[in-house]
């Protein structure tokens, strides 16, 4: 019995990274905020690089609540989108070389988003990880946590509900 040899690791890595960067670069607001993503397998960590323009209270100083909300929402949508596309990325069904902002698959849309501010955001880098608690054909529920220096000391968390795009093959 013959078995197909495993796909070379650099091809797998390239396909995953290419898909992720197409998703990130397709959204101008992610660039405006200075948010990047670290990927380990299918696990994403969003990284918000500190910049003076992100300040909301110059007296403390603390980053703006809207920055925190944006960072959490961007992280949640990216996690959900990456997970939604993962099987297509892995199988090669999604042509990652042809991905442009115009040809990007439709992204989930936020229905509602609730941010819980636990402590003030310090003027330094922040990190976030999102967890998809439920992803159905139409709706998804995502929880996201953000921290700065200590993973155990969250400065904010959020829960959001999202409307999933109708996709080829899953269309109603």
């Amino acid at each position: 019995m013959t078995r197909r040899p495993p796909e070379p690791v650099h091809l797998i890595r390239h396909r995953r990274d290419r898909a992720l960067s197409a998703l990130v670069e397709g959204v101008p607001y992610i660039g405006f905020m200075g948010i990047g993503f670290d990927r380990r397998g299918d696990e994403l960590t969003a990284v918000l690089t500190y910049d003076d323009k992100l300040i909301g209270n110059p007296m403390l100083p603390a980053i703006h609540g809207g920055v925190t909300a944006s960072f959490l929402e961007v992280s949640a949508i990216m996690e959900l989108s990456f997970q939604m596309l993962w099987d297509e990325i892995e199988s090669g069904r999604l042509d990652v070389e042809a991905l442009t902002p115009e040809t990007l698959p439709r992204l989930p849309k936020t229905i509602d988003f609730t941010v819980d501010y636990l402590r003030s955001g310090l003027p330094r880098d922040a990190y976030a990880r999102a967890r998809v608690n439920r992803s159905g054909r139409r709706y998804a529920s995502v929880h996201v946590e953000a921290w700065q220096d200590n993973r155990q000391r969250l400065f904010a968390q959020a829960t959001g509900h999202f409307l999933m795009p109708v996709r080829d093959g899953t269309a109603e």
């Binding site: 607001y29 703006h64 809207g66 929402e73 988003f113």
Partner: peptide
């Protein structure tokens, strides 16, 4: 502002920017 767009196909502003406006 085009820099605040969340959906490149439609040009709609990102929800995060609207959150920032609401929070402020």
């Amino acid at each position: 502002d085009a820099a605040l767009v969340g959906d490149p196909r439609t040009g709609v502003i990102h929800g995060g920017a609207v959150s920032a406006l609401m929070d402020t």
